[in-house]
Every structure is written in C-alpha cells, then in structure tokens.
Deep mutational scan, measured.
Amino acid sequence: TTTLTYTDEEEARKAAEELKRRGITFTYTKRGGTWEIRIK
C-alpha cells in the first residue's frame, strides 16, 4: 500500500483524477487539514 499525503486540496484532487484516468484503485480520506490517497 502506498499512501500519498497532501496539504493542498487542489493537488490531492489532481492526483486522484490522474489515478482514476489510469484505472488505479485508491481510497481518498480527509484527515484534519490533510488529504490522504491510499493506493491498494
């Protein structure tokens, strides 16, 4: 499992869109002031 952490929502959203485009499965979690993208 790879976890990407972002403090900028815009960056996190761009990363999530890129992963979706590649067909990669991930979970997206907001934790306080950070956003976590966990790639399975």
Rank of each mutant, 00 (worst) to 15 (best):
G23A: 03
T25N: 13
T1E: 14
R13A: 07
I39N: 01
T3W: 08
D8G: 04
T3P: 04
T25W: 11
T7S: 09
K20S: 13
A15H: 06
R38M: 14
E36L: 10
Y6G: 02
T27P: 00
D8E: 08
E11W: 04
G33K: 11
K20F: 10
T34D: 04
R13F: 08
T2F: 13
I37M: 02
R13I: 14
K30Q: 13
E17S: 09
K14H: 09
I39A: 02
E36I: 15
T25P: 14
T2E: 09
D8A: 06
E9M: 05
R22W: 07
T5Y: 15
L19S: 00
T5R: 12
Y6W: 03
G23D: 04
T3K: 07
T5G: 02
A15N: 03
E11M: 09
I24L: 08
R21H: 08
I39H: 03
T2H: 11
Y28P: 01
A16R: 05
T27Y: 06
G33M: 11
T2A: 10
K14T: 09
K20A: 13
I39K: 01
R21K: 12
E36F: 11
A16Y: 06
R22F: 06
I24A: 04
G33Y: 09
E10G: 13
R21C: 02
E17P: 00
T2S: 09
E17G: 07
K30W: 08
E17L: 11
G23C: 02
A16T: 05
L19M: 04
R13L: 15
T5H: 10
I24E: 04
A12T: 01
R13G: 04
T3E: 03
T7F: 12
L4G: 02
Y6N: 00
R22S: 08
W35K: 00
E9H: 06
T29Q: 10
I37S: 00
T34K: 13
K30D: 12
I39V: 08
G23T: 02
A15M: 15
E9I: 05
E10Q: 13
T27N: 04
R22Q: 14
T25A: 14
T5K: 09
T2K: 11
R21A: 11
E17R: 11
A16Q: 04
T5A: 05
E36R: 03
T2D: 08
T34M: 14
T27M: 05
G33L: 12
T2V: 15
T3N: 04
E11Q: 11
T27E: 13
L4M: 10
T25C: 06
K40T: 15
R13M: 14
Y28A: 06
T27A: 05
I37A: 00
F26K: 00
T27L: 06
E10K: 13
K30G: 05
I24T: 04
E18S: 08
R22I: 08
T27S: 09
T1W: 15
E11D: 10
D8P: 01
E18Y: 11
A12V: 03
E36W: 05
E9P: 07
G33E: 15
Y28E: 04
Y6A: 01
R22P: 01
L4Q: 05
G32S: 06
T25H: 13
A12E: 00
I24G: 02
G23R: 03
K14V: 08
R31A: 10
K14P: 01
G32E: 13
R13Q: 12
Y6E: 00
E17T: 09
T29H: 11
E9A: 07
T2P: 06
Y28G: 02
E11C: 03
W35A: 02
I39T: 03
L19G: 00
R22L: 14
Y28H: 03
G32K: 06
F26R: 00
R22M: 13
T27H: 06
K20V: 12
G32L: 07
I24C: 03
R31L: 13
D8H: 08
Y6K: 00
R13S: 07
R13V: 11
T29E: 13
R21F: 07
W35S: 01
T5C: 05
T3V: 15
T34A: 10
T2I: 15
T2L: 15
I24K: 03
K30H: 13
E18M: 08
Y28I: 15
K30A: 11
R38H: 14
E18R: 07
R38Y: 11
T3I: 15
I24N: 02
A12F: 15
G23S: 03
K30M: 08
L19R: 00
K20D: 09
I39G: 01
E10T: 13
T3L: 14
T2N: 08
D8I: 10
E17F: 09
K14D: 07
R31T: 13
I39M: 05
A12G: 04
I39E: 01
I37Y: 01
F26E: 00
E10H: 12
K20R: 14
F26M: 02
R13T: 09
R13Y: 07
A16E: 02
A15Y: 09
K14G: 06
E17H: 09
E9K: 06
R22N: 10
T29R: 09
K14A: 13
K20Y: 11
T29I: 13
E10Y: 12
R21L: 11
G33H: 13
W35F: 10
K20N: 10
T29M: 10
K20T: 14
T25L: 13
Y6I: 02
T27Q: 06
A15L: 06
I24Q: 04
K40E: 15
T1M: 13
L4E: 03
Y28M: 15
T5I: 15
A16L: 09
T27G: 03
L4N: 03
T2M: 13
I24S: 02
A12L: 04
G33T: 12
T7I: 09
K14M: 10
E36P: 00
T29G: 07
L19A: 01
E9C: 04
E11N: 06
Y28T: 08
R22E: 07
I37F: 03
E17D: 12
G23M: 03
R31G: 06
E17Q: 11
Y28L: 15
R13E: 09
L19N: 01
T27V: 09
G32D: 14
E9R: 07
W35L: 02
T7A: 08
I39W: 04
G23H: 05
I37P: 00
G23W: 02
E10D: 12
T5P: 02
F26T: 01
K14R: 12
T25K: 14
T25G: 09
R31F: 11
K30S: 09
T27R: 04
T27C: 05
I37L: 05
A15G: 03
L4K: 04
T3A: 05
L19T: 01
K30N: 12
W35R: 01
R21Q: 10
T1D: 13
K40Y: 15
G32A: 09
Y6C: 02
E10C: 04
I37E: 00
I24M: 05
E17N: 09
K14F: 07
G32R: 05
G33F: 10
T27K: 04
A15E: 05
G33S: 13
T2W: 14
T1Y: 15
I39P: 02
T1I: 14
L4Y: 14
Y6H: 01
E9S: 05
K40M: 15
T5V: 15
G23I: 01
E36V: 14
G23P: 01
I39Y: 12
E11V: 06
Y6F: 15
E9F: 07
T7P: 04
A12R: 01
R21D: 08
I24D: 02
W35H: 04
R38F: 10
T34C: 04
T5D: 02
I24F: 10
R21N: 10
A12I: 02
Y28Q: 06
K14L: 11
T1F: 14
T2C: 05
K40A: 14
L19D: 00
G33N: 15
E17Y: 10
T5Q: 08
E11R: 06
W35P: 01
A16K: 04
R38N: 12
G33C: 03
E9N: 03
K30T: 07
T1A: 12
T34R: 11
W35Y: 10
R13W: 09
T25E: 15
D8N: 14
G32H: 08
R31V: 15
A12Q: 01
E36Y: 14
T27F: 06
K20H: 11
A16S: 05
T29W: 07
E10R: 13
L19H: 01
R38S: 13
K14E: 10
T7H: 11
T25V: 13
E9G: 06
T5E: 06
I37R: 00
I37K: 00
